[in-house]
Amino acid sequence: MNIQKLNLCMDILRKDLGDGFVASCIITTEDGQVLISTDQANIASATILNDATTFISNAMKTYPTELGQYYYIDVAGNMAVLVIPFGNYQWTITINKKLVKLGLLLNVVLPAIINAFEDAAVS
């Protein structure tokens, strides 16, 4: 894992989301340890969502199709959370849904950060 490139991933995210960016965290799925986080308060939610991903993955084993690239959760109030599982890692992004268009997040930002993360992971 290239730490510099990992930090670059966060920079891309901040830049693309602008004022709609709230917090982000990348953790290892096996032990829930934080690789990088923009906000200490966001670590707890990232850990909980790591467990949520495990739950969903296990639950979907009885369904014909598995979980794909991401899941998006609408939160009461102004926030929403995008969770991107990458096998051994998981990226959690909290946004202000009033300021970020979901189309931009899923069609522009998501492919860009996935590429950036995969680049960081293989380096």
Partner: peptide, 14 residues
């Protein structure tokens, strides 16, 4: 995780 679950969620599936 904030103020509670909102009114929807989306799961991208294979």
């Amino acid at each position: 995780l904030g103020g509670g679950l909102g009114d929807h969620y989306v799961l991208d599936l294979k």
